[in-house]
């Protein structure tokens, strides 16, 4: 199976190390001729060092010993797809295609973009709207163009089941919303990640309920931010609701197709049922970034006080709702802002 030579050298190195480091311990390892070892199919016995000396199993490990025998691992990657499935190349193609839509169709305007940090992790939390939400790409595009740093959009895992769409979404920076994924992105990698705590309840609400924030899940996003030790940055988006308003939902069809919801939109009436799924109305999108919310708790804990989490989530939701109302008060036209 494996070539003998490197293993032999490894072994002798280890023994030298043992002899050098542990003195009598090294000798112990050598006087083992009366111990029998064996196994099924193969195996061994470096035997009993731990039983005789009463140590925990680990001191035998080459702890803190520089590994001279591990050459740099050759990693012959051919694509730039990262562990999240994101490809910067595809992402830049997507940005080039989406750019004109962002500038000329939605005429996206930002306010308070400077509140988003240029380095380090932060959890972006926004309201979610439009049958097929137009807010996520607008937020991701804007931040990536202006700040030059990637944004990972957390979405319902339902996406991953859809052929082509799921793969494209993942290559374009979408990540399945899982607490472990969020923690790794925010804490370990210091990335920006965008979540919509309303989940599918946001985009599936009908036009009559526009700009009324749904329940913010179970406050999981607050817990993730606490655990990762990053601020939550609420983002209020106005305009996405009108870009694809839902008239009603066909729940039976959604069940048959195993979709979270099946909307019938004004766009369907205007452009037909196929084109209407991709053609947005040219509503003016305005995005306002609120002040970052930080939590005065120790990061890295397994659990946090549920009441504290729910309070903070409700607090953020209320602030976002107030901001939406302010923005709507100031808005004079759906189409021109």
């Amino acid at each position: 199976m494996t070539s003998d030579a490197p293993d032999t050298s490894r072994t002798s190195q280890r023994n030298l190390r043992n002899a050098g480091n542990t003195g009598p311990g090294g000798a112990e390892v050598i006087h083992q001729s009366n111990i029998k070892g064996s196994s099924s199919r193969s195996s061994s016995a470096s035997a009993s060092a731990e039983a005789r000396s009463g140590r925990t199993p680990s001191p035998n490990l080459p702890v803190a010993v520089p590994r001279v025998d591990s050459p740099p691992v050759n990693d012959p990657r051919r694509s730039d797809v990262d562990e999240w499935g994101r490809s910067e190349h595809l992402r830049s193609v997507a940005r080039r295609l989406y750019g004109p839509l962002y500038r000329r169709w939605f005429r996206v305007e930002w306010e308070g973009l400077e509140k988003i940090p240029k380095t380090g992790g932060a959890l972006l939390v926004a309201n979610h709207a439009g049958a097929i939400p137009s807010d996520a790409p607008a937020i991701m595009h804007g931040i990536e163009e202006e700040l030059g740093r990637p944004v990972y959009g957390m979405a319902d895992y339902f996406f991953r089941k859809v052929p082509v769409v799921g793969t494209l979404w993942s290559r374009a920076g979408g990540v399945a919303a899982h607490p472990d994924n969020a923690y790794r992105l925010l804490h370990d990698q210091g990335q920006l990640s965008l979540v919509f705590p309303e989940g599918t309840k946001g985009p599936s609400k009908s036009y009559a309920d526009r700009y009324r924030l749904r329940r913010f899940g179970r406050g999981g996003f607050v817990e993730i931010a606490m655990r990762s030790g990053v601020p939550v940055i609420p983002i209020a988006v106005v305009g996405a609701e009108e870009s694809m308003p839902i008239l009603f939902r066909m729940n039976g069809l959604a069940k048959v197709l195993k979709l979270p919801y099946f909307p019938v939109t004004a766009n369907d009436l205007a452009f037909g049922p196929l084109l209407g799924k991709v053609a947005y109305f040219p509503a003016k999108i305005k995005i306002r970034v609120l002040d970052p919310v930080t939590f005065d708790v120790d990061p890295g804990l397994e659990r946090y006080s549920k009441s504290r989490v729910m309070d903070e989530a409700e607090h953020i939701r209320a602030k976002l709702q107030d901001t939406l109302h302010d923005m709507l008060r100031e808005r004079r036209s759906v189409w021109f802002g």
């Binding site: 199976m1 494996t2 003998d4 293993d7 032999t8 072994t11 023994n15 390892v29 050598i30 083992q32 001729s33 111990i35 029998k36 070892g37 064996s38 196994s39 099924s40 199919r41 193969s42 195996s43 061994s44 016995a45 470096s46 035997a47």
Partner: peptide
């Protein structure tokens, strides 16, 4: 696996078992 273990002088005996 057995080859790797054979290289270790501390292992006195190796017994393989298989079909």
């Amino acid at each position: 696996m057995a080859q790797a273990l054979e290289a270790d002088p501390n292992v006195e005996m190796i017994l393989g078992l298989g079909t």
